[in-house]
Design a protein around this nucleic acid. Structure first.
Lengths: 342, 342
DNA sequence: GCCCGGATGTAAATCGTTTTATTTCGAGCG
DNA sequence: CGCTCGAAATAAAACGATTTACATCCGGGC
């Protein structure tokens, strides 16, 4: 086995073919298996390739085949722990199946989303889209219509776009039921921006759940706040200033819920005795803080896997877009567990 | 202005040239500016390109020029908030300068690092490497030597690899000085894995700082634990079991420090009265928890920017590798601020 | 009148693969 | 022996840009 002559640039298929004494076409077929090749030739080509340390040039292959073995990931903010977790899972899957990952961080700028997608369209086979305003993006004139897109959380219902999302309505309903059972009597809903389906659905589920339990709508107070820790802090402060009688809170996001919980601590309201708090997501900090945060766990790993697999199915097999819904599970922790000393 | 005929596939440079009544070469030169082109031609080409909605095919360009306008990001774990923050910054910079970002998550598997780098070598112009074992990676036979690499935190001292890192020794020393001044008498060092330069340097700086202040080495107890929340919990438990007299703790990472702080809460040791705690990083949770975590702030944004700029300088201008060091700043918060009622 | 040089323009080579069309060869069969 | 048929191999045409080398034109200096 000879070592490759180090000074002669990268090894091309031509070099391999030459050494194996076959044509370039035969070498290509032998390596990719696109067509039958004689057993002698196939063996010689394989050996030559190994000896020369041949690495196929992906760019050239892309140019010819039109495929990139690469998928795009468009995310408003990688810093968000829930999304970051999904990114991790997706990266693992991509690595396994030989796909590269192209990351785009849109910083919540909807204008950048469409532009990003068109840029990506030239270098990826499909895109996983985590959008906060998919409708605006999809109606942007720059929106690339040929590109397979699978949306997560938001925008899964757009034509031609498949997606995955949690059972947000069911989750909101479960939160309502749990808070009622845990002893809540006057309720606060820390909702997210009205443009987000996750926010409206979780909120809708929550109020529906309260109705089901016979709670009068006048006992539900709603405040809107960003999906962030600071949003939660600020939102709960506004809420309690207006309605100090609230004794049970549902936040659409763990980030908000944890912010609210910390704010309550600063305000001197003890959780869960004075106020029950239930979140949504089950990020890792939910179980770390004290009291632990009761929350609705989304199966982020399963969602990520499903989204990835749908995308691969669409780019590789021409599969059709579909929408997949995932159940959420109530995780009971200290923030809604009162030690009833009555 | 005619609209592009929607049914005829992507618009190529040939189409543009044809419509502008010039050769393909002229069209290329007019658009890229690689050579002077007559004012009439340049105008016609520009208009035709705009009218047809021409988007240059990046893959073809890559094949010809050997450049990719893309850089790789190799990270052990995107979930880590400190790294995630840097990823966000880098993404913004890449977007500004027209680079794409290829993300690889190695999941702390050093064996995957070298393989990832070789795979990336074919599709990116350079790599930003966040490694936990750069020496192993660099000595792997698969390590791609031609590829420009800029290392963050670890491995910046390897030949041919530039990098950025914080002043870890100085930070450790500052932690020591601060803990002494805050009233610490017996010290604990929650160190990271010995394979990490950040861990050894922060630890070395810390013990040097104690010596400088005349603290006898017998008053410093060291425990090794992973750089994680759970590592911090478990590490401080071991440490306090063996040396309950410790009243000041320096953790090499905010994640560890916060884990330690929470564990202390569970153990009934109140921070800061019974135990002072100082971390390193200043992740966002450090200022959210109560008491706030005193810590050494790394300027993650500046480091990210510098690393990115160095990489671009190397791929675009053939710049030489260099090492850049960033100062860290002590941020005083509740975890080391005793209300001295003496 | 002749030649030179700068400015534009263009045909064709090139990047490294895949894929299509064509060639070659030998076995099988009437 | 001639003919067909299939398998294996190959030459050459893509893919879509950049870049090289060459052609053309025109004004100006001698």
């Amino acid at each position: 086995m000879k070592i490759e002559p180090a000074g002669s640039g990268p090894v091309t298929l031509r070099d391999v073919a030459e050494r194996a004494q076959v044509s370039i076409a035969t070498a290509s077929n032998a390596l990719t298996g696109a067509r039958r090749v004689g057993p002698g030739a196939i063996e010689r080509v394989r050996r030559s390739a190994a000896e020369l340390g041949y690495r196929p040039n992906g760019v050239a292959r892309s140019l010819r085949t039109g495929l990139h073995q690469s998928i795009g990931l468009v995310i408003p903010d990688v810093t968000n722990p829930f999304w970051a977790g999904m990114v991790g899972v997706i990266e693992g899957l991509a690595d396994e199946s030989g796909f590269q990952l192209s990351l785009v961080n849109t910083a919540f700028d909807a204008g950048r989303e469409a532009a990003s997608l068109t840029r990506l369209a030239g270098s990826v086979d499909g895109v996983l889209l985590f959008s906060t305003n998919p409708r605006a993006t999809a109606s942007d004139p720059a929106f690339p219509h040929g590109l397979p897109i699978v949306a997560v959380d938001e925008g899964f219902d757009l034509p031609g776009i498949g997606g995955v999302h949690s059972d947000n309505v069911g989750g909101g309903r479960a939160a309502a039921e749990h808070l009622v059972e845990a002893g809540g009597t006057v309720f606060g809903l820390l909702a997210g921006p009205g443009t987000l389906t996750t926010a409206t659905q979780r909120g809708a589920g929550f109020s529906a759940g309260l109705s089901d339990r016979g709670i009068d709508p006048s006992r539900l107070h709603r405040v809107t706040a960003p999906y962030s820790f600071e949003g939660g802090r600020e939102g709960v402060r506004r809420m309690l200033a207006q309605h100090p009688e609230i004794d049970a809170l549902f936040a659409c996001t763990d980030n908000q819920a944890i912010g609210a919980l910390f704010e309550c601590h600063d305000l001197g309201r003890v959780v869960p005795d004075d106020l029950l708090i239930c979140g949504f997501d089950d990020i890792s900090w939910a179980s770390r803080i004290t009291p632990g945060l009761t929350t609705l766990r989304q199966d982020a790993a399963a969602m990520a896997r499903s989204a990835f697999e749908q995308l691969v199915d669409r780019v590789a097999n021409g599969g059709a877009p579909r929408v997949e819904v995932f159940p959420v599970n109530l995780v009971r922790r200290g923030s809604t567990r009162r030690v009833t000393t009555v």
